[in-house]
Amino acid sequence: MIASVWSWLTDPANWRGAGGISSRLGEHLGYSAVVILIAAAIAIPLGLWSGHSGRGRWLISAANAARAVPTIGLLFATSLWLGPHVTGDLAFTVPSILVLVLLAIPPILAGAYAGVEAVDPAVRDAARGMGLTGPQVLRKVEVPLALPLLVSGLRSAVLQVVATATIAAYVGLGGLGRYLIDGLASGRYAVMAGGAVLVSGLALVADLVMAALQRLAASPGLLPPGRRKRRSDRPDAGPDPPHGTTVDVPAGQDREGSRTHRR
C-alpha cells in the first residue's frame, strides 16, 4: 500500500497540468493566504481594541464558544444556502472562503486580545504616567508586547484554515483536498493517501514558518536571557550587587510560563 502511495506521489505526470499537484498546491496556498489576510484584517484591529479598552469582551467569549460548531456543519449549511445565490465557479469558492474566514477569526481575535490584555498593568500604568497618549500606549507598548501571542493566534488560524480548506473540497473548493475527496469517491486509496501526505506536509511547513515568525515577533527583551540557569529566577530575587560590578546572574521572567499564569 505504501509503495502505491509513493509511486503516485513521485510520478512526475501527477505533478503537471491543470489538476496536477503543483497547481493544487498553489490553489491551497492561495485560498489560505487570502482567507488569513481577510480574517486578520477584521480580527486584529478588533482584538487590539478590545484588549486596550477592556470593552467588547463578549466578542471574544462569543467567538470562542462558536468554535464548538462542527466545521463541516458550518461548511455544508453555508454552501447549501448560499450556493444558489452565487453563479458560476464562485458558487463553489465564495461559501467556502466565507466559512474559512469565519473559522480563522476566533483564534486571531483571541490572540490579539490576550496579548494586549496580558501586558503587565504596571507597565501600562507607567506608560500612561509618563504621558503617553492612549494611541501611543497601544502602538509603542501594548502592540510590541502583544506580538508573540498575536502571532500565536495567527498560527492557530493558519493550521485551522489549511485543514478546513482540505475538507472544503467536498463542497467544490479546489486545492489539495481534491485528491482526498476525489480519491474517496472513486475508491483510489493511493490518491487519497498521497493527498493526505501532501496536505500534512503543507500543514507542517506552514506551522514551522509561523513558529519562526513567532520567534521573530518577540522583542529580544521578551526572550528568556541566554545565560539564565533556573526557571525559578525572578527579577526581585537576591540582593542588589554593589555598584561597579556587572551582574552575571541575569534574572529573567519566565516568558513561557507567563503566558498561562500572570500576576
Binding site: M1, I2, V5, L159, V162, A163, T164, T166, I167, G177, L180, L184, Y189, M192, A193, G195, A196, V197, V199, S200, A203, L204, D207
Partner: peptide
C-alpha cells in the same frame, strides 16, 4: 505538537497505512 498539525481528514485517511486497517 507536530502530530497536532496533521489535518484530521488526512490523519483518518493515513491511519490504515499505519494500522493496517480498512478505511
Amino acid at each position: 505538537g507536530l502530530l497536532y498539525t496533521i489535518p484530521s481528514l488526512a490523519l483518518f485517511i493515513l491511519m490504515p497505512l499505519v494500522l493496517g486497517t480498512r478505511i
